[in-house]
Design a protein around this nucleic acid. Structure first.
Length: 693
DNA sequence: AGCACGCCGACT
DNA sequence: GTCGGCGTGCTC
């Protein structure tokens, strides 16, 4: 930190002595004095203060000694919030910010404060990144400063001081490889290599080759002279694509932006992308903003995965950011996964993207055989009973263990928010309002999750049983039980705290929670998907879609049916998601779900926002919101689970798809109006709320 | 959000 | 006469 301006000690006064303001009334006051930069003496600055009503640029005077370094995109420090006392400027906290523009003059009538310091000469906030962050902030009714915090990693001075390596030469256009299994695959690659912007919703075939396919799409884009970006939901899938890219192209063309790198390495790699030293970026969520130059392709893998939604305000979603970038930067899109989201189906439906899928014959060739049983079908075998396995699951596992590893997917404990009948699995509902019954612990009294009414004497409305099924047996206990049921077979577990990347080809029981399934060398001989009811009965609009996504992800690791690969899903066979798994028809399922959403006017066929807070505050905000024409207000309804019995309500706002921007800006304006009115109780506004219904 | 300026009641 | 209530407005 070499800094001329801090050398004087207490900062502001001597800065102001350099650059003096005129006090003439007739003209707007400006900064005079020889110390001001001669050329473009005004810097327009984004001050890094996440306040909603300060989401605007502020102009500062550029001192002459900073004239060279104070270029657009660099980080600066400025005094902000100062008061004019007796004609002198006093106070003002130092804030970080970014120079957005150098200008000849300011449209601000008052005197400009000088920049306090240029923190670094690196122009990290490029015009394209600024434009993207502005678009994302507007889309999500957030501030530019908040989005920038997600988009620009913290500076690391040592990493910045190192030069980035010179860019590697462009690769040749790759052969289609396993893309040949898709009728439109080779054409898609050719379009990328030719510099076009094809947009596809890709239903990836089961099996281990999707990372290579992503790598080839990236290579084709690079061959055409443009950059590429791949965003994946977790570190394991990121590592697989990284490996595939390195194998195809060597190490010099791409950067992998993983969360676990540490600040220095993280910034070093990000800089390599920003400086154009590498042309492709691969990584998890935060990589969605990676400033890849001349973007030709954005890939999002498994866009239904929850980790693509950023938990930090204003909660941008990787898929949406990718689509915004594609539109803004003229890039192609590859939205892929073993499953298809309703959003993907809608992109196909509206003609914005084209489906990229193999034909039925190819799917049948590579997919495992899928069979289904309900867990009411208990095995006769004592060992199977002990392991709580239906007979079909038991037999399948026993036979498959002769030829290789068997995957057992067990929903996470506590993944079951809803109680169900112990006999017929009908969800337990409140007799007053049909809300889901809940119990804080296994011996706590039953309560309705919607209206809070206590239920003393529940019995199943369908079959009359008094037995409730409360919890899923977790992976650990399942492992113990299965270990006893299959003595001498090694048992491995993979879950939240210890995720296995892969397992060898030898016979073993691999017990995993959804999303943590290791890859098996040569594929699993079989997979058992247990407690499907737990996934299917979650009180969420997306429960079916999510269950299918988790099942497909596990089933995609199993050998083809022709090699004996079998999947047994323990769930109600008539459920739509179960049927889609049996037919291996994710696109059909998504299309069906989309149709249903359209009938209900639910997202993505409409756009929604949620408004959550104290009842009076929510009503207040809604009163201040100038809703777009035709907007619906659903609720407000009480939200339970608010801490300490504080009353919390939530309203959902719904508009037609074209009015999402109007809704977001109306809500932002209303929030700002509330701040101006000093309304004390905060209200949370969220665009595209995750859980609805 | 903070923070200071500004214009009306109970104290030294 | 003054201390201070928080209503109002601004932040380059």
């Amino acid at each position: 930190m070499s800094s001329t301006d801090e050398a004087g000690g207490s900062g502001a006064p001597e800065q102001l002595a350099f650059i003096r303001e005129t006090v003439r009334r007739a003209k707007p006051r400006t900064w005079l004095g020889a110390q001001r930069a001669e050329h473009l003496p005004v810097a327009r600055v984004l001050v890094d203060k996440g306040l909603l009503h300060l989401d605007q640029f502020f102009d500062y005077a550029v001192p002459a000694n900073m004239a060279e370094e104070a270029v657009p995109g660099v980080r600066v420090r400025v005094r902000f919030g100062a008061r004019v006392v007796n004609g002198r400027r006093e106070g003002g906290e130092l804030h970080d910010g970014f120079i957005v523009e150098r200008r000849a003059d300011s449209d601000y009538a008052g005197p400009l404060a000088p920049l306090a310091q240029v923190l670094s000469p690196e122009p990290v906030l490029t015009p394209a990144l600024l434009r993207l962050c502005r678009t994302v902030a507007d889309r999500y009714a957030g501030t530019l400063a908040d989005v920038l915090q997600l988009a620009v990693p913290p500076r690391h001075a040592k990493a910045e001081a190192e030069p980035s390596p010179p860019p590697a030469p462009l690769p040749a256009a790759p052969e289609p490889g396993s893309w040949s299994r898709y009728p439109q695959g080779p054409e898609f690659l050719a379009a990328l290599a030719a510099g076009h912007a094809p947009r596809a919703v890709w239903t990836a075939l089961p099996g281990p080759s999707w990372p290579q396919e992503i790598a080839r799409a990236v290579a084709a884009t690079l061959a055409g002279g443009r950059g590429a970006l791949v965003v994946l939901p977790d570190g394991r899938s990121t590592a697989r694509v990284d490996e595939a890219l390195t194998e195809l192209l060597g190490g010099g063309l791409h950067a992998t932006l993983a969360a676990d790198l540490g600040p220095k390495e993280r910034y070093r790699r990000w800089l390599a992308v920003s400086r154009g030293s590498v042309r492709a970026a691969v990584g998890t969520r935060a990589a969605m903003f990676a400033p890849v130059r001349d973007l030709g392709l954005v890939v999002v893998w498994s866009d239904g995965d929850g980790s693509h939604a950023d938990p930090r305000a204003p909660h941008p979603h990787v898929r949406e950011v990718a689509l915004l970038r594609a539109a803004e930067e003229g890039a192609g899109v590859l939205l892929g996964g073993h499953a298809v989201t309703v959003e993907g189906a809608q992109l196909v439906n509206t003609g914005w993207a084209r489906p990229l899928a193999a034909d039925r014959a190819t799917v049948r060739e590579v997919a495992p055989r899928v069979r289904t049983v309900t867990d009411l079908d208990q095995a006769r075998d004592a060992a199977a009973q002990q392991a709580r396995l239906p007979s079909l699951a038991w037999q399948t596992a026993r036979e498959a263990l002769a030829t290789g590893p068997v995957l057992i997917q067990v929903p996470r404990r506590g993944y079951v928010p809803r109680l169900a009948c112990g006999r017929c699995r009908t969800p337990a509902r409140c007799r007053h309002c049909e809300g889901p019954l809940e119990a804080a612990s296994s011996d706590a009294p039953l309560r309705c999750g919607w209206c809070g009414e206590a239920e003393e004497r529940w019995h199943c409305a369908e079959c009359g049983s008094f037995r409730l099924r409360a919890q899923v047996v977790g992976a650990r206990r399942t492992a113990e039980e299965l270990g006893k049921a299959f003595p001498r077979i090694p048992v491995r577990t993979s879950g939240r705290d210890a995720v296995l990347l892969s397992v060898p080809a030898e016979p073993a029981l691999v017990i995993s929670t959804p999303g943590a399934e290791p890859v098996a060398e040569g594929g699993y001989a079989a997979a058992l998907l247990l407690d499907g009811w737990a996934l299917l009965s979650r009180p969420d609009l997306r429960a079916g879609e999510e269950a299918l996504r988790l099942w497909l992800a596990a089933a995609a690791l199993v050998r083809p049916a022709s090699e004996g690969g079998t999947v047994v899903v323990v769930a109600e066979p008539t459920a739509r998601a179960v049927q889609a798994l049996i037919r291996w028809d994710p696109a059909g399922h998504a299309a069906f779900e989309l149709e249903e959403r359209a009938q209900l006017h639910f997202p993505p066929v409409s756009r929604m926002a949620s408004v959550t807070g104290a009842p009076a505050a929510v009503a207040d905000l809604l009163g201040l919101t100038r809703l777009p024409e035709g907007a619906d207000v659903l609720g407000p309804v009480p939200v339970f689970g608010g801490r300490r019995g504080e009353e919390v309500e939530r309203a959902l706002l719904r508009v037609a798809p074209g009015q999402g921007a109007a809704l977001a800006s109306a809500l932002k304006a209303a929030q700002i109006a509330r701040i101006a009115l000093r309304t004390p109780e905060p209200v949370k506004v969220r665009i595209d709320p995750l859980e609805i219904g």
